[in-house]
Computed example of a mutant assay.
Amino acid sequence: MTATELANQVGVCSVVTLWIALVWRAGSALRLPNQRGLWLTVFAATIAITLFQPKVLAWLAHAGVGTQTVSLTRNLIGVLSAGLVLLFIVDSTRARHQRLTVIAGLVTALGSLLALNLLGDARTTAPASPQGPATASSLYWLILVVAHLAGDAAAVVVCWPYSLRTADRDLVWSLRLFAMGSVLALVFWAGYLYHLYVPDQDLMPWLSVVISVHGLFRAASLLAPTATALARSMTALRTVWRLWPLWRDLVAAVPQVALADPQRTRLQAVLRPRSSWALQAHRQIIETYDALLELQQYVRPEAYETAHRQARRTGMRGDHLAAAALAGALGEARRAKLSGAAPSDPCPLPGVERGSQATLLAIAGMWPSPTGPLPAAPGPLRPRRP
């Protein structure tokens, strides 16, 4: 595969990914002021990158759109994108004078490009192809390159350090991915500037690859909230799935802790949840812990030690040993409750005082306890204190 073929394929992938990301995030991003600027910035960059693709250029040429018109449109939108990057950055500082300065610089750059184009500066030094650079004598092209370098350099300088200070996970990844995309944009425009003075036709396909990969990073920065939301959903789904057998058995023994009866099967609970997975996981954790506290009134004093010895005989060690012992003692307490035994003073089980999610999931991993059956009819419990 030649460099040109690679550039074309990566370019198509980049453009498709960018448009999908824009459509996917349009609804939520445009409603939130802190995400609207990023969306508009990526939108402008996407149009510019789209107008850089050979297939799009060929289609526009077939439709009768001139090369000069396409080049001017792409360059104006590209500079607008660079200006939006700066606005996106200064908006976070809430500095009105900086915002006005950026707007003034953006208007000046756009006006200069239009004026120089009308005066013929862009035409007389136009590139041989819509993708290639012109000669270094053109002020038009120097303004274009400098505008991009300024916007992308500012993005790198501001976005990455700020991502290290914020605790918002979505914002952290959006800023880091945006900064990495800006680094690639700097490489592209630095290479473009170099090519103005030292023409090298072999360089342009690789620069095309760089700017297309930059587009993938821009799309990723836009999709970061979606990716983290998906990761949270998958974590909640895993919690619902792993905790469900323990939760079902405990709320069957202590039904008053449950807001609603468990669904018939674990698969049904996952595929047809009554609420979101996150809410279902939260509910199962709370109800499991509440049931566990209630069942401590049915734990015999020696139950945990007995289950611990049984688990040790099977070769368990460390955290698995503790979880198996807790599962065994809890299973005995559940059977005592279901058999109608009278409650006694609570016998706290070790390690469950704070209701740690990790502890409950560890118990669920050993449920039913692999330590062997415990007595189904436990002996008399300690009488409750008056």
Score class of each variant (00 low, 15 high):
Trp160Tyr: 14
Ala220Phe: 09
Gln280Ile: 00
Pro378Ser: 12
Leu139Tyr: 07
Leu295Phe: 08
Ala329Val: 03
Gln268Met: 05
Ser212Asn: 06
Cys347Trp: 00
Arg300Met: 06
Ser182Arg: 12
Ala122Phe: 07
Arg335Gln: 13
Gly331Lys: 04
Ala61Trp: 03
His148Pro: 02
Val156Leu: 10
Phe188Asp: 09
His148Gly: 08
Thr306Ala: 08
Arg165Gly: 15
Pro386Glu: 11
Val65Trp: 09
Val145Leu: 06
Thr101Trp: 14
Leu360Arg: 03
Leu193Ala: 07
Tyr140Thr: 02
Leu330Gly: 03
Arg74Ile: 06
Gly331Asn: 07
Trp59Phe: 02
Ser233Gly: 11
Val145Ser: 04
Thr371Lys: 06
Gln256Tyr: 07
Ala307Val: 07
Leu259Asn: 00
His320Cys: 08
Asn34Thr: 15
Arg274Lys: 01
Ile47Thr: 10
Gly365Arg: 10
Ala269Glu: 05
Val251Gln: 04
Pro133Ile: 06
Thr108Val: 14
Val56Ala: 04
Pro245Ile: 06
Arg384Lys: 13
His320Glu: 12
Leu32Trp: 11
Gln201Ile: 08
Ala167Met: 12
Pro348Ile: 01
Gln296His: 02
His195Ala: 09
Ala227Tyr: 14
Thr265Ser: 09
Leu177Phe: 15
Val90Pro: 08
Ala303His: 07
Arg317Phe: 08
Ile103Trp: 13
Val270His: 00
Ala376Gly: 14
Gln284Thr: 01
Ala253Ile: 10
Leu222Trp: 12
Arg313Ala: 12
Ala122Met: 11
Ala260Met: 02
Ala236Lys: 09
Leu246Ala: 08
Gly27Ile: 11
Ala179Trp: 09
Pro225His: 12
Ala7Asp: 02
Pro130Asp: 04
Ser344Leu: 04
His62Asn: 03
Ser81Val: 05
Thr228His: 15
Thr306Leu: 09
Leu57Pro: 00
Gln256Asn: 08
Ala231Thr: 15
Ala322Lys: 10
Ser129Trp: 03
Ala44Phe: 15
Met366Asn: 07
Glu5Gln: 00
Ala48Leu: 11
Leu80Gln: 13
Pro383Met: 14
Gly355Trp: 03
Arg382Pro: 01
Ile103His: 04
Val70Thr: 10
Thr4Val: 00
Thr108Trp: 13
Val90Ala: 10
Leu60Arg: 05
His62Leu: 06
Leu18Val: 02
Gly328Val: 07
Phe88His: 15
Val209Tyr: 02
Trp244Tyr: 09
Leu100His: 14
Leu177Val: 13
Val145Glu: 03
Met180Tyr: 13
Ala7Pro: 00
Val79Tyr: 08
Val42Gln: 11
Gly215Cys: 10
Ser71Gly: 02
Gly365His: 09
Val146Gln: 05
Ala136Lys: 01
Gln284Ala: 02
Leu139Ile: 07
Tyr140Lys: 03
Cys159Arg: 09
Pro199Lys: 03
Arg176Trp: 13
